[in-house]
């Protein structure tokens, strides 16, 4: 398409950008999908407490074994899959708003954390990751001499 346009023209660059944009959109679309073809992404909060960062993620209906947590160079990644479970076989659905499938989310942590002291807990569909800050990342009062 771009070969028809005189190289370096403004329109040529605009088409270039458009093509890149299309490519980006289609690349993003390759992510996980829910039952209705939408992508699924669990809501996540990160709270800064004085001596720690606390991340909470809402993963209702999932099991501990479905979740993987990984920390590498201050980038925290949470991955998992919500399985579609139909305990009562032959059940038919009237109404389905819940989303299923795989997800993966990464965060660059805004403060340095002590990777050895990270604790994760999963209760009532909420994943809580407590990350203690390293000594130099903790807030401290500076005295005036």
């Amino acid at each position: 398409m771009t070969s028809l346009i005189k190289h370096g023209s403004r329109l040529g660059w605009a088409l270039h950008d458009l093509r890149d944009e299309f490519e980006r959109v289609f690349r993003d679309l390759e992510g996980p999908f829910d039952a209705n073809g939408r992508t699924w992404s669990p809501p996540i909060d990160i709270v800064d407490k004085d001596d720690k960062l606390v991340l909470t993620a809402e993963l209702p209906g999932m099991q501990k074994g479905d979740i993987k947590i990984d920390l590498q160079d201050n980038v925290l990644t949470i991955e998992g899959e919500k399985h579609y479970k139909n305990e009562e076989k032959k059940a038919s659905y009237y109404h389905c708003e819940r989303a299923y499938g795989k997800f993966s989310r990464s965060f660059t942590l805004p403060r340095k954390v002590d990777s050895a002291g990270i604790m994760a807990e999963f209760k009532d569909g909420v994943l809580t990751i407590t990350m203690p800050k390293t000594e130099d990342a903790k807030p401290r009062q500076i005295e005036i001499k």
Partner: peptide, 20 residues
């Protein structure tokens, strides 16, 4: 998000509300 299903003996309503 809510799901409503029907089986032989029951109707089931499932609602996702984590952390309650």
């Amino acid at each position: 998000p809510t799901e409503i299903s029907e089986s032989r003996d029951n109707y089931t309503i499932t609602m996702e509300i984590p952390g309650l």
